Simulated scan of single mutants.
Amino acid sequence: MSSSSAKAAREALAAMDPRLPLHARLREALTERLRGGEWPPTEPLPAEAELAQDYGVSLGTMRRVLTDLVDEGLLERRQGNGTYLRRMQAQNSLFRFFRHYRQGDQVPASRILARETEPAPADVANALGERTGARTLRLHRVRLYDGEPFLVEDIWLPLPTFERLRDVDLDQIGDLLYPVYEQLCGQIVGSADEELWVELADGRIAELLGCSSGEPVVVVERVARTHSGTPVEVRRSRGLASTFRYRVEIH
Protein backbone atom coordinates (compact mmCIF):
# COMPACT_ATOMS: atom_id res chain seq x y z
CA MET A 1 0.00 0.00 0.00
CA SER A 2 1.34 3.49 -0.86
CA SER A 3 2.02 6.06 1.85
CA SER A 4 -1.02 8.06 0.73
CA SER A 5 -3.23 4.96 0.94
CA ALA A 6 -1.83 4.12 4.38
CA LYS A 7 -2.59 7.67 5.50
CA ALA A 8 -6.16 7.31 4.18
CA ALA A 9 -6.51 3.99 6.02
CA ARG A 10 -5.48 5.55 9.34
CA GLU A 11 -7.76 8.53 8.78
CA ALA A 12 -10.68 6.20 8.04
CA LEU A 13 -9.98 4.27 11.23
CA ALA A 14 -9.77 7.51 13.23
CA ALA A 15 -13.16 8.56 11.83
CA MET A 16 -14.90 5.52 13.31
CA ASP A 17 -16.99 5.89 16.48
CA PRO A 18 -14.38 6.28 19.28
CA ARG A 19 -16.72 4.63 21.78
CA LEU A 20 -16.18 1.30 20.01
CA PRO A 21 -13.23 -0.98 20.86
CA LEU A 22 -10.30 -0.76 18.45
CA HIS A 23 -10.99 -4.15 16.83
CA ALA A 24 -14.63 -3.14 16.16
CA ARG A 25 -13.57 0.15 14.58
CA LEU A 26 -10.96 -1.63 12.47
CA ARG A 27 -13.48 -4.22 11.31
CA GLU A 28 -15.92 -1.50 10.27
CA ALA A 29 -13.23 0.47 8.42
CA LEU A 30 -11.92 -2.60 6.60
CA THR A 31 -15.43 -3.80 5.76
CA GLU A 32 -16.21 -0.50 4.06
CA ARG A 33 -13.20 -0.93 1.79
CA LEU A 34 -14.04 -4.54 1.01
CA ARG A 35 -17.66 -3.76 0.17
CA GLY A 36 -16.50 -0.82 -1.90
CA GLY A 37 -14.66 -3.19 -4.24
CA GLU A 38 -11.09 -2.08 -3.51
CA TRP A 39 -9.86 -5.67 -3.76
CA PRO A 40 -11.44 -7.90 -6.44
CA PRO A 41 -12.01 -11.59 -5.63
CA THR A 42 -9.31 -12.53 -8.13
CA GLU A 43 -6.55 -10.84 -6.09
CA PRO A 44 -5.46 -11.53 -2.50
CA LEU A 45 -5.58 -8.85 0.15
CA PRO A 46 -2.24 -7.44 1.29
CA ALA A 47 -0.47 -9.54 3.91
CA GLU A 48 -1.71 -9.26 7.49
CA ALA A 49 1.52 -7.57 8.59
CA GLU A 50 1.25 -4.98 5.81
CA LEU A 51 -2.37 -4.18 6.66
CA ALA A 52 -1.52 -3.91 10.36
CA GLN A 53 1.31 -1.50 9.62
CA ASP A 54 -0.84 0.66 7.33
CA TYR A 55 -3.60 0.95 9.94
CA GLY A 56 -1.15 1.43 12.79
CA VAL A 57 -2.46 -1.56 14.79
CA SER A 58 -0.86 -4.68 16.17
CA LEU A 59 -0.61 -7.82 14.06
CA GLY A 60 -2.77 -9.63 16.62
CA THR A 61 -5.57 -7.08 16.27
CA MET A 62 -5.49 -7.24 12.47
CA ARG A 63 -5.44 -11.05 12.53
CA ARG A 64 -8.47 -11.07 14.88
CA VAL A 65 -10.44 -8.75 12.58
CA LEU A 66 -9.61 -10.77 9.46
CA THR A 67 -10.65 -13.96 11.26
CA ASP A 68 -13.96 -12.32 12.20
CA LEU A 69 -14.56 -11.37 8.55
CA VAL A 70 -13.75 -14.92 7.45
CA ASP A 71 -16.21 -16.28 10.04
CA GLU A 72 -18.86 -13.81 8.81
CA GLY A 73 -18.39 -15.02 5.22
CA LEU A 74 -17.02 -11.80 3.74
CA LEU A 75 -13.51 -13.20 3.30
CA GLU A 76 -12.04 -16.62 2.66
CA ARG A 77 -8.57 -17.98 3.31
CA ARG A 78 -6.95 -20.12 0.64
CA GLN A 79 -4.23 -22.39 1.94
CA GLY A 80 -0.84 -21.09 0.86
CA ASN A 81 -2.42 -18.45 -1.35
CA GLY A 82 -3.64 -15.65 0.91
CA THR A 83 -6.95 -14.10 1.95
CA TYR A 84 -9.56 -13.18 -0.65
CA LEU A 85 -12.92 -11.48 -0.91
CA ARG A 86 -15.37 -14.37 -0.86
CA ARG A 87 -17.56 -15.26 -3.82
CA MET A 88 -20.93 -16.67 -2.84
CA GLN A 89 -21.13 -20.39 -3.62
CA ALA A 90 -24.76 -20.34 -4.70
CA GLN A 91 -24.79 -23.35 -6.98
CA ASN A 92 -25.40 -25.72 -4.08
CA SER A 93 -28.27 -23.75 -2.56
CA LEU A 94 -31.18 -25.09 -4.59
CA PHE A 95 -29.93 -28.62 -4.28
CA ARG A 96 -30.36 -28.55 -0.53
CA PHE A 97 -34.05 -28.30 -1.41
CA PHE A 98 -34.56 -30.32 -4.58
CA ARG A 99 -33.34 -33.87 -5.01
CA HIS A 100 -33.08 -35.84 -8.21
CA TYR A 101 -32.62 -39.58 -8.28
CA ARG A 102 -29.66 -39.24 -10.69
CA GLN A 103 -28.18 -36.18 -9.05
CA GLY A 104 -24.99 -37.26 -7.36
CA ASP A 105 -22.47 -34.42 -7.10
CA GLN A 106 -22.72 -33.15 -10.65
CA VAL A 107 -23.73 -29.60 -11.56
CA PRO A 108 -26.99 -29.78 -13.55
CA ALA A 109 -26.95 -28.71 -17.17
CA SER A 110 -28.75 -25.51 -18.17
CA ARG A 111 -30.63 -24.58 -21.31
CA ILE A 112 -31.73 -20.99 -21.93
CA LEU A 113 -35.07 -21.08 -23.72
CA ALA A 114 -35.64 -17.33 -24.01
CA ARG A 115 -33.71 -14.10 -23.51
CA GLU A 116 -35.83 -10.97 -23.66
CA THR A 117 -35.72 -7.30 -22.71
CA GLU A 118 -38.88 -6.44 -20.81
CA PRO A 119 -40.27 -3.99 -18.25
CA ALA A 120 -39.80 -5.17 -14.69
CA PRO A 121 -43.00 -6.36 -12.96
CA ALA A 122 -43.77 -4.39 -9.82
CA ASP A 123 -42.55 -7.05 -7.38
CA VAL A 124 -39.33 -7.66 -9.34
CA ALA A 125 -38.67 -3.93 -9.65
CA ASN A 126 -39.17 -3.52 -5.91
CA ALA A 127 -36.71 -6.33 -5.16
CA LEU A 128 -34.14 -4.77 -7.50
CA GLY A 129 -34.66 -1.30 -6.05
CA GLU A 130 -35.92 -0.06 -9.42
CA ARG A 131 -39.10 1.71 -10.51
CA THR A 132 -41.94 -0.42 -11.89
CA GLY A 133 -41.44 -0.87 -15.61
CA ALA A 134 -37.67 -0.34 -15.52
CA ARG A 135 -35.84 -2.21 -18.26
CA THR A 136 -34.62 -5.68 -17.35
CA LEU A 137 -33.12 -8.63 -19.16
CA ARG A 138 -35.17 -11.75 -18.46
CA LEU A 139 -33.68 -15.21 -18.92
CA HIS A 140 -36.00 -18.21 -19.05
CA ARG A 141 -34.17 -21.51 -18.64
CA VAL A 142 -34.43 -25.11 -17.50
CA ARG A 143 -32.00 -27.11 -15.37
CA LEU A 144 -31.51 -30.72 -16.39
CA TYR A 145 -29.99 -34.00 -15.25
CA ASP A 146 -29.17 -36.42 -18.05
CA GLY A 147 -31.36 -34.35 -20.35
CA GLU A 148 -34.34 -34.52 -17.99
CA PRO A 149 -35.71 -31.11 -16.80
CA PHE A 150 -36.25 -30.80 -13.06
CA LEU A 151 -36.19 -27.03 -12.49
CA VAL A 152 -37.63 -24.11 -14.47
CA GLU A 153 -36.16 -20.67 -13.82
CA ASP A 154 -37.07 -17.08 -14.62
CA ILE A 155 -34.26 -14.61 -13.98
CA TRP A 156 -34.46 -10.80 -14.11
CA LEU A 157 -31.32 -8.67 -14.42
CA PRO A 158 -31.28 -4.85 -14.37
CA LEU A 159 -30.28 -2.93 -17.48
CA PRO A 160 -27.96 -1.34 -18.46
CA THR A 161 -25.85 -3.15 -15.83
CA PHE A 162 -26.19 -6.47 -17.71
CA GLU A 163 -26.27 -5.00 -21.22
CA ARG A 164 -23.42 -7.23 -22.42
CA LEU A 165 -25.51 -10.34 -21.72
CA ARG A 166 -28.16 -9.25 -24.24
CA ASP A 167 -26.17 -10.14 -27.33
CA VAL A 168 -23.54 -12.62 -26.20
CA ASP A 169 -23.71 -16.01 -27.91
CA LEU A 170 -25.73 -18.34 -25.70
CA ASP A 171 -23.02 -20.97 -26.15
CA GLN A 172 -20.72 -18.71 -24.09
CA ILE A 173 -23.10 -18.89 -21.12
CA GLY A 174 -22.34 -22.01 -19.16
CA ASP A 175 -24.32 -23.94 -16.59
CA LEU A 176 -23.45 -21.45 -13.81
CA LEU A 177 -24.44 -17.80 -14.30
CA TYR A 178 -22.51 -16.03 -11.55
CA PRO A 179 -19.09 -16.50 -13.21
CA VAL A 180 -20.62 -15.00 -16.38
CA TYR A 181 -21.97 -12.02 -14.46
CA GLU A 182 -18.46 -11.39 -13.14
CA GLN A 183 -16.56 -11.96 -16.39
CA LEU A 184 -18.85 -10.07 -18.75
CA CYS A 185 -20.50 -7.46 -16.54
CA GLY A 186 -18.15 -7.00 -13.60
CA GLN A 187 -20.90 -7.93 -11.11
CA ILE A 188 -19.80 -10.13 -8.21
CA VAL A 189 -22.52 -11.77 -6.12
CA GLY A 190 -21.61 -11.68 -2.45
CA SER A 191 -24.88 -12.65 -0.76
CA ALA A 192 -28.49 -13.59 -1.40
CA ASP A 193 -31.85 -13.99 0.32
CA GLU A 194 -34.17 -16.85 -0.53
CA GLU A 195 -37.90 -17.25 0.08
CA LEU A 196 -40.00 -20.36 -0.58
CA TRP A 197 -43.66 -20.94 -1.30
CA VAL A 198 -45.91 -23.46 -3.04
CA GLU A 199 -48.13 -22.85 -6.05
CA LEU A 200 -49.88 -24.91 -8.72
CA ALA A 201 -48.14 -25.49 -12.03
CA ASP A 202 -49.64 -23.63 -14.98
CA GLY A 203 -49.56 -25.08 -18.47
CA ARG A 204 -46.17 -23.60 -19.35
CA ILE A 205 -44.43 -24.96 -16.23
CA ALA A 206 -46.22 -28.31 -16.41
CA GLU A 207 -45.09 -28.88 -19.99
CA LEU A 208 -41.45 -28.16 -19.16
CA LEU A 209 -41.42 -30.28 -15.98
CA GLY A 210 -43.39 -33.13 -17.55
CA CYS A 211 -46.20 -33.00 -15.02
CA SER A 212 -49.92 -32.30 -15.02
CA SER A 213 -51.27 -28.77 -14.98
CA GLY A 214 -52.30 -27.93 -11.42
CA GLU A 215 -49.69 -30.19 -9.82
CA PRO A 216 -47.97 -28.57 -6.78
CA VAL A 217 -44.60 -26.95 -7.41
CA VAL A 218 -42.24 -25.29 -4.94
CA VAL A 219 -40.98 -21.83 -5.86
CA VAL A 220 -37.63 -20.62 -4.53
CA GLU A 221 -37.15 -16.88 -5.09
CA ARG A 222 -33.65 -15.55 -4.71
CA VAL A 223 -32.57 -11.91 -4.59
CA ALA A 224 -28.80 -11.79 -5.14
CA ARG A 225 -26.66 -8.82 -4.10
CA THR A 226 -23.14 -7.54 -4.53
CA HIS A 227 -20.83 -7.17 -1.54
CA SER A 228 -21.99 -3.56 -1.26
CA GLY A 229 -25.61 -4.76 -0.90
CA THR A 230 -26.83 -3.70 -4.35
CA PRO A 231 -29.46 -6.17 -5.69
CA VAL A 232 -28.44 -7.47 -9.13
CA GLU A 233 -30.63 -10.51 -9.74
CA VAL A 234 -34.12 -11.80 -9.01
CA ARG A 235 -34.46 -15.52 -9.73
CA ARG A 236 -37.53 -17.75 -9.40
CA SER A 237 -36.86 -21.47 -9.59
CA ARG A 238 -39.76 -23.93 -9.78
CA GLY A 239 -39.55 -27.65 -9.15
CA LEU A 240 -42.04 -30.41 -8.46
CA ALA A 241 -43.11 -30.55 -4.84
CA SER A 242 -42.64 -34.32 -4.98
CA THR A 243 -38.88 -33.76 -5.42
CA PHE A 244 -38.63 -31.13 -2.69
CA ARG A 245 -36.96 -31.90 0.63
CA TYR A 246 -36.34 -29.49 3.49
CA ARG A 247 -33.71 -30.24 6.09
CA VAL A 248 -32.37 -28.06 8.91
CA GLU A 249 -30.06 -28.78 11.81
CA ILE A 250 -31.16 -27.45 15.20
CA HIS A 251 -28.60 -27.26 17.98
Results as ranks from 00 to 15, higher is better:
residue 180 V to N: 12
residue 66 L to C: 02
residue 172 Q to V: 09
residue 18 P to A: 00
residue 45 L to H: 04
residue 123 D to P: 00
residue 87 R to W: 02
residue 26 L to M: 07
residue 206 A to Y: 04
residue 245 R to H: 08
residue 17 D to E: 11
residue 246 Y to L: 15
residue 203 G to S: 14
residue 151 L to S: 07
residue 35 R to A: 03
residue 16 M to F: 05
residue 184 L to W: 15
residue 96 R to N: 13
residue 134 A to S: 15
residue 95 F to H: 11
residue 151 L to Q: 10
residue 120 A to I: 08
residue 36 G to Q: 09
residue 78 R to N: 02
residue 54 D to Y: 05
residue 36 G to Y: 07
residue 156 W to I: 00
residue 220 V to W: 02
residue 237 S to P: 02
residue 154 D to P: 02
residue 24 A to N: 09
residue 221 E to Y: 00
residue 222 R to T: 13
residue 116 E to Q: 15
residue 116 E to D: 09
residue 48 E to V: 15
residue 105 D to S: 15
residue 1 M to F: 04
residue 146 D to C: 03
residue 125 A to R: 05
residue 3 S to C: 03
residue 167 D to M: 07
residue 1 M to A: 10
residue 116 E to K: 15
residue 56 G to T: 03
residue 179 P to T: 09
residue 166 R to K: 15
residue 224 A to T: 05
residue 121 P to W: 03
residue 98 F to C: 03
residue 217 V to T: 00
residue 121 P to I: 11
residue 250 I to C: 07
residue 63 R to G: 09
residue 105 D to F: 15
residue 30 L to T: 15
residue 179 P to E: 10
residue 37 G to S: 07
residue 181 Y to H: 08
residue 223 V to F: 01
residue 248 V to M: 08
residue 155 I to Y: 02
residue 101 Y to A: 09
residue 96 R to L: 10
residue 134 A to Y: 06
residue 100 H to P: 03
residue 217 V to K: 01
residue 89 Q to P: 00
residue 147 G to C: 05
residue 114 A to L: 06
residue 119 P to G: 12
residue 103 Q to A: 13
residue 76 E to Y: 01
residue 176 L to Q: 14
residue 94 L to M: 10
residue 110 S to I: 10
residue 250 I to V: 13
residue 245 R to Q: 14
residue 216 P to G: 03
residue 11 E to N: 08
residue 239 G to E: 07
residue 40 P to S: 06
residue 10 R to K: 12
residue 29 A to E: 07
residue 205 I to S: 03
residue 29 A to G: 04
residue 110 S to K: 15
residue 90 A to S: 14
residue 74 L to G: 01
residue 107 V to Y: 14
residue 197 W to M: 09
residue 119 P to H: 13
residue 57 V to K: 02
residue 178 Y to S: 14
residue 136 T to M: 06
residue 119 P to T: 13
residue 200 L to I: 02
residue 93 S to W: 08
residue 22 L to V: 13
residue 92 N to G: 12
residue 135 R to E: 12
residue 214 G to S: 01
residue 112 I to T: 14
residue 129 G to D: 03
residue 99 R to C: 00
residue 118 E to A: 06
residue 159 L to G: 03
residue 131 R to V: 11
residue 182 E to Y: 08
residue 140 H to G: 04
residue 104 G to L: 08
residue 227 H to R: 03
residue 238 R to A: 03
residue 39 W to I: 12
residue 1 M to Q: 10
residue 77 R to K: 11
residue 135 R to T: 05
residue 53 Q to T: 10
residue 9 A to L: 04
residue 23 H to T: 08
residue 31 T to E: 12
residue 51 L to M: 14
residue 220 V to R: 14
residue 173 I to R: 05
residue 248 V to H: 05
